[in-house]
Design a binder for these strands. Structure first.
Lengths: 221, 221
DNA sequence: ACATTCAATGAACGATCGTTCATTATATGC
DNA sequence: GCATATAATGAACGATCGTTCATTGAATGT
C-alpha cells in the first residue's frame, strides 16, 4: 500500500516539478522563450515527460496557469481568514493581501503578465488570467454595500458597485505599476493612495492607514 | 528630384507596412506566434525585407513597440488640444481620451498586453510599454495640485501626488478590465467610477459626468 | 538610351521547435 | 524472486524558426 503511494507520489512530484519549472521559465525568460527544452532543463527531467504527463506543451501551460491562479486565490483566502469581521476590516484585508509580498512580487507579477499576453489568443489561458472572480467581487461588493447603507448615501447599490469596480481597477493598476517599475514601487504609498480614496468615499470607515475599526463610536463621540 | 523621393517613399512605405503587419500580428495571434513568416505574409513582402529594413526581427519588434507608443501619445495629445483650460477640464480630457475608442480598443489593448508580456525580459520593449511617461504625469499632477490648493486641503502636494498616482492606476486598471473582458466592458461605467472617485476627493470640481466647469460660481451661489 | 544604384526577392542554411516512440529503469503484485 | 505494470528516458522526426546572400528589377543620374 505504501509502495503504491510512492509511485503515485513520484508521478505527482514530476507533474509539479514541470509546472513549477514552467512558471519559473515564464517569470525569467518570458512566454516566447518558454520552450520544451527550457522547461525540462529547469525541471531536470527528460524531454518526453511533458507529453507523458500533460499530453502537450499547451496543456502544460494551461495547467501552469491554473496552478498560478489557484495559488493566488489560496494566498488571498488564507490572509482573509485572519481579518476582522467588520466590512471595512474585510476590505482592508483584501487590499493589504493583494499588495503583500506573498501575492505581489517580481516572480508572480511576471508570470501573470506573461500569461496575460497570450490570454487574448488562448481561451484556455484566459480562463486563469483574471484575478477578479465572482467570489472575490461579491465579497468586496457586500462589504461596500454594508458601508454604503450605513453611511446613508444616495443609491447605496450604485455606490457599492462603483466602489467595488473602482477598488479592483485600482489594485490592477497598482499591479501594473509594480510590474513596470518593480524597484521603485512603494507598497506603503500604494496602500495610502487606495485608502485615501476610500476615506474620501467613506470618511467614517477608512483613514489613510486602512480601516477604522469602530466608526460608530467615532460618530457618537 | 521627384524620382528620388519616390524611392525614399517606397522605402518608408515598406518599413511602415512591416511595422503595421507586426502590430496586426501581435493583436491577432500574440507575441509567441508573431514570426518572420507571419509578418512578411501579412505585409505581402518578401522574407528578406525584415533584415533589410530592421537588421533583425527583434529590432522590428522594438520599432513596432516604439510606433505603438508614439501613436498612443499622439492620440492623447490630439484629444488634449481640444480640452478646456481649467485643471479639472484638462483632467477630464486625459481621462476621457484614455478611455475613448481611439485609444482603447481591442487591437490597441491586445498589442499593449502582448508587448508587456515580453517587457520584463526585453529592455528594448520595456522602454515603450509604459503608457505613463513623465510629461503625462506632470500634466496630471499640476492640474491636481491647482485643484488641491484651491480646495484648501491639508498637504495639497501629498494629495495631488496621490490623486495623480491613483488616477493613473485607475486608468491602467480599466485598461486591464477592458483587455480581459472587451465585450462586457462599459466605457460609460468606467468613466462614472473614476469621476465618482474624483468627485469624492474634490466635490466642487468633479461630478459623476466629469469636470465642473465653474466651481467658483457654485461656491458663491 | 544606357550605366548605375539600391530596394526587393526567395531559395537555402543551421538551429531549434514540439512531438513521437522504442527502449530502459523501477515500483508493484503474486 | 519473478512477472507485470508503468514511470522515465532520450534519440530521432518533420516543421518551423531567424538569418544570409546571390540574384532580380525598377528607379535614378548622365
Amino acid at each position: 500500500m505504501t509502495a503504491k503511494l510512492k509511485r503515485q507520489e513520484n508521478r505527482k512530484r514530476s507533474r509539479l516539478l514541470l509546472i513549477e519549472a514552467t512558471l519559473d521559465s515564464l517569470a525569467e525568460v518570458g512566454f516566447a522563450r518558454t520552450s520544451v527544452s527550457e522547461i525540462v532543463e529547469r525541471a531536470k527531467l527528460s524531454r518526453g515527460m511533458i507529453h507523458l504527463h500533460f499530453s502537450s506543451k499547451d496543456k502544460l501551460l494551461e495547467e501552469a496557469a491554473r496552478h498560478a491562479s489557484a495559488s493566488y486565490f489560496d494566498d488571498l483566502e488564507q490572509l482573509l481568514d485572519k481579518s476582522g469581521n467588520s466590512p471595512q476590516e474585510k476590505l482592508e484585508a483584501v487590499i493589504k493581501s493583494d499588495l503583500s509580498d506573498n501575492v505581489l512580487n517580481k516572480r508572480s507579477v511576471r508570470i501573470w503578465f506573461a500569461l496575460r499576453g497570450e490570454a487574448s489568443v488562448s481561451q484556455a489561458i484566459a480562463r486563469y488570467s483574471d484575478t477578479r472572480d465572482k467570489k472575490l467581487y461579491d465579497l468586496i461588493f457586500d462589504a461596500f454595500l454594508d458601508i454604503a447603507i450605513a453611511s446613508k448615501v444616495n443609491e447605496p447599490g450604485a455606490v457599492a458597485r462603483d466602489a467595488t469596480h473602482g477598488s479592483l481597477a485600482l489594485l490592477e493598476g497598482m499591479w501594473t505599476d509594480f510590474f513596470l517599475h518593480p524597484d521603485s514601487f512603494n507598497r506603503g504609498s500604494a496602500l495610502r493612495i487606495i485608502f485615501r480614496i476610500l476615506s474620501n468615499m467613506f470618511p467614517r470607515y477608512f483613514n489613510l492607514e486602512g480601516a477604522v475599526k469602530s466608526p460608530l463610536n467615532d460618530m457618537v463621540a
